[in-house]
Amino acid sequence: YTAFGDLEVFLHGLGLEHMTDLLKERDITLRHLLTMREDEFTKNGITSKDQQKILAALKELQ
């Protein structure tokens, strides 16, 4: 049995499950992801397509 964390649930909701391992390897938490700047997305290997999905979701949360 494995409990999913906030990061996994957030990514799954956006259809971005493939990013879970990448972000965990880089010790990026959901809190960090929510406050990242555009250059940090790129530096951490997050594609512009995935970045757009994340940023759109963040706008909806605000």
Rank of each mutant, 00 (worst) to 15 (best):
L58W: 09
H18F: 05
D6E: 13
G15R: 04
L11G: 02
T35Y: 09
F4L: 13
R26P: 03
L7R: 02
A57G: 15
H18M: 05
F10A: 05
E60H: 12
H18C: 01
L23I: 03
I46F: 14
N44E: 10
Q62C: 10
M19N: 05
F10N: 03
L16Q: 02
E17L: 06
N44L: 15
N44R: 08
M19K: 07
L22N: 11
E8R: 09
K24L: 07
A3H: 11
Y1A: 14
L34E: 11
G5L: 07
I54M: 12
G5H: 09
H32P: 02
Y1N: 10
T35G: 08
A3Y: 09
L16V: 06
T29F: 01
T2R: 08
F41M: 14
G13W: 04
R26Q: 09
H18R: 05
E17S: 15
E38P: 14
E60S: 12
L58I: 13
K53Q: 06
L61N: 14
F10I: 03
A56Y: 13
K24Y: 12
L30A: 06
D50M: 01
K43N: 07
H12A: 15
L7W: 02
I54N: 02
L16F: 04
L34F: 10
G13F: 03
A57I: 03
G13T: 11
N44P: 02
D27Y: 01
D39W: 06
D27H: 11
E38N: 08
D6N: 10
K43G: 05
I46E: 02
L14A: 15
H18P: 04
Q62A: 08
T29S: 08
Y1F: 09
K59T: 12
E60T: 14
L14T: 09
T29Q: 07
I54Q: 05
F41W: 11
L16E: 01
A57T: 07
L11C: 02
V9T: 15
G13P: 04
L58Q: 15
A57P: 08
H12R: 15
E8L: 02
I28K: 01
D27F: 01
R37S: 14
H18Q: 05
G15M: 01
L30C: 05
L22D: 12
Y1H: 11
D27W: 00
M36Y: 02
L34I: 13
